[in-house]
């Protein structure tokens, strides 16, 4: 029996939850750990990934039928690198502070395996609309993942939640802040705890499904 074609909504939610790149696929770990010191930079990184991933998925999908198999990867890289370059210039021009805080990780979106992975695994086999839905879902899933990590790190580690610039809530006095959480090690701690909790939930669900 041929596999049923997935609807656009399913494709979208697949990336958002079921195949969440951060917590399920463990894709793009490098920025995940590096830019989650504050919610603001996580959001900025997320926005960048949304921009690049949606556009690269669409672009790859559009050219998928004309690209010789032998050079598909170089071509995907050219597309992604160009998009990242554009993104970088736009961010430096309009949100320079955010661009500075993301630093190298902005350029490194080029080699984020999530982007190339979706180009190869999905966009090269599906139409532009579905590819866009996949890109958006995955990118939002990634954004949600890093924002969640950043939320715990910044709240518990620095006592605040920075949404954008001066839009910052100071919630926990300095005395009660867990400083290690905003240091590099804190990223692993928070990430590990979150993954364990998510896995616990997923395993339990899987167990229940088996029992039924």
């Amino acid at each position: 029996m041929p596999r049923r074609e997935k609807s656009i909504r399913e494709i979208f939610s697949n990336g958002l939850l079921k195949q969440n790149p951060t917590f399920v696929q463990f894709l793009g770990m490098c920025p995940t750990l590096a830019v989650t010191k504050s919610v603001e930079s996580a959001l900025g990184m997320g926005a960048g990934v949304i921009f690049v991933l949606v556009l690269s998925n669409i672009a790859v999908s559009l050219v998928r039928n004309y690209v010789p198999k032998e050079v598909r990867i170089p071509i995907y890289i050219v597309i992604i690198a160009s998009l990242v370059t554009v993104l970088e210039m736009i961010m430096k021009a309009f949100v320079p502070d955010l661009a500075a805080s993301l630093g190298t990780f902005l350029s490194l979106i080029v080699v984020n395996c999530l982007i190339l992975g979706r180009a190869e695994a999905f966009a090269s086999k599906n139409g532009p609309l579905k590819s866009a839905a996949d890109g958006l879902g995955m990118a939002l899933g990634f954004t949600g993942g890093i924002v969640l990590i950043a939320f715990f790190r910044e709240l518990l580690g620095a006592g605040s939640i920075t949404i954008w610039g001066s839009l910052k809530l100071d919630l926990i006095p300095e005395l009660y802040q867990v400083n290690i959480l905003v240091q590099s090690a804190g990223a692993f701690l928070v990430f590990g705890i979150l993954v364990s909790q998510i896995n616990k939930y997923r395993m339990n669900k899987a167990d229940r499904n088996e029992e039924v």
Binding site: V67, P74, I75, I79, A81
Partner: peptide, 11 residues
């Protein structure tokens, strides 16, 4: 040709 076109458009 394909590579060239892609690079050109991107540039």
């Amino acid at each position: 040709v394909t590579l060239s076109i892609v690079v050109l458009v991107a540039s």
